[in-house]
């Protein structure tokens, strides 16, 4: 069955590609869930497509039945009602049992993926993300690296009421931050999520995962970006958290393991006040990194 399910996305990818090529605009073609860059996000995407195609199949049957009835049994075409047709135990059993079968077929891979999602073992890096109204704080556990991440200045200016700035002129409008979270590729990252004031939710669609950041609770999720998939991945807070809920993006920069080591060392150097002869780093990053760590809930 797994094989059958694995085959579904490739069939879909073909039809999706065919559909996408029809639309001239890239934005009109934004119709479906992104496949993502982690093993889990691909599994989730494949589950999404499997249940979608089941719905399409059931829909073809049910809507076909409805449309057939509406066309074939029109009074205007002289249809005579068969008023004796009021009950059939056989039919009731059939349309109870078949859907149960479909649900079982769907539930098994869904449960399997869910078990994998909940398996936090073997993580190599732990990062604690704390949601604030309205920014994120990232703490690299055991590394003494911690910084805030909030909407970049350009988006922030453009998003003011009647700012007069065309959002299309701003690169990655509302999806860009001053300090992105940085992680290495091909590494199991465990995120620890909590909220400082109200509930937030940390979501990067390309990683397939979303989880609430709740005051007084630490939630976990993990992701491992496939090797070779370095780049910047963007998401947003996904739980209503007040006035500026729409303006606290999540941006993750995925780099190679070597680049990550260099980045981490630079962050540490910037964070420790002792070596005064290290002004080479960007002063802005320096100031942000020097902020005190948030009190733990």
């Amino acid at each position: 069955m797994t094989k059958a399910i694995r085959r579904v996305p490739s069939v879909l990818a073909l039809s999706a590609a065919a559909f996408a090529s029809l639309s001239a605009h890239a934005e009109w073609g934004n119709l479906n869930m992104p496949v993502g860059v982690t093993e889990l996000s691909k599994e989730i995407h494949s589950l999404h497509m499997t249940i979608f195609w089941w719905c399409v199949a059931i829909g073809v049957f049910v809507f076909g039945w409805m449309i057939w009835s509406l066309v074939a049994f029109r009074k205007s075409q002289g249809a005579k009602p068969d008023t004796t047709m009021v009950h059939s135990t056989k039919a009731e059993i059939i349309w109870t049992v078949i859907p149960v079968g479909i649900l079982v077929i769907m539930a098994i891979p869904a449960a399997r993926t869910l078990i994998a999602i909940e398996d936090m073992r073997g993580s190599e890096i732990s990062i604690k993300a704390t949601g604030y109204q309205w920014k994120w704080q990232y703490e690299y556990i055991g590394e003494d690296v911690s910084f805030f991440s909030q909407l970049d200045r350009q988006s922030d200016e453009a998003r003011q009421l009647k700012s007069g700035v065309d959002p299309k002129s701003v690169q990655d409008y509302l999806l860009n931050v001053d300090n992105p979270m940085v992680v290495p590729e091909d590494t199991k990252i465990r995120m620890l999520l909590t909220g400082q004031d109200v509930i937030h939710a940390w979501w990067v669609p390309a990683f397939g995962m979303k989880k609430d950041a709740i005051p007084g609770t630490i939630n976990e999720l993990w992701f491992k970006v496939d090797a070779g998939k370095t780049g910047t991945y963007r998401g947003q807070c996904a739980e209503l958290c007040g006035r500026d809920h729409g303006f606290m993006p999540v941006v993750v920069k995925v780099v190679t393991k070597e680049e990550y080591k260099v980045w981490l060392a630079a962050q540490k150097a910037a964070a420790s006040p002792a070596p005064a002869e290290a002004p080479a780093d960007a002063p802005a990053a320096d100031a942000v990194a020097a902020l005190p760590a948030a009190p733990r809930g």
């Binding site: 009835s69 009074k75 039919a91």
Partner: peptide
Amino acid sequence: FMLSTMLIAIPTGVKVFNWCATMWKGSIS
């Protein structure tokens, strides 16, 4: 909660199928 939620599809499906069967061999306006 996933399994119990999926179960709702069964009685809901029964309803939709019954409405379809009501129209079947009717005289529809």
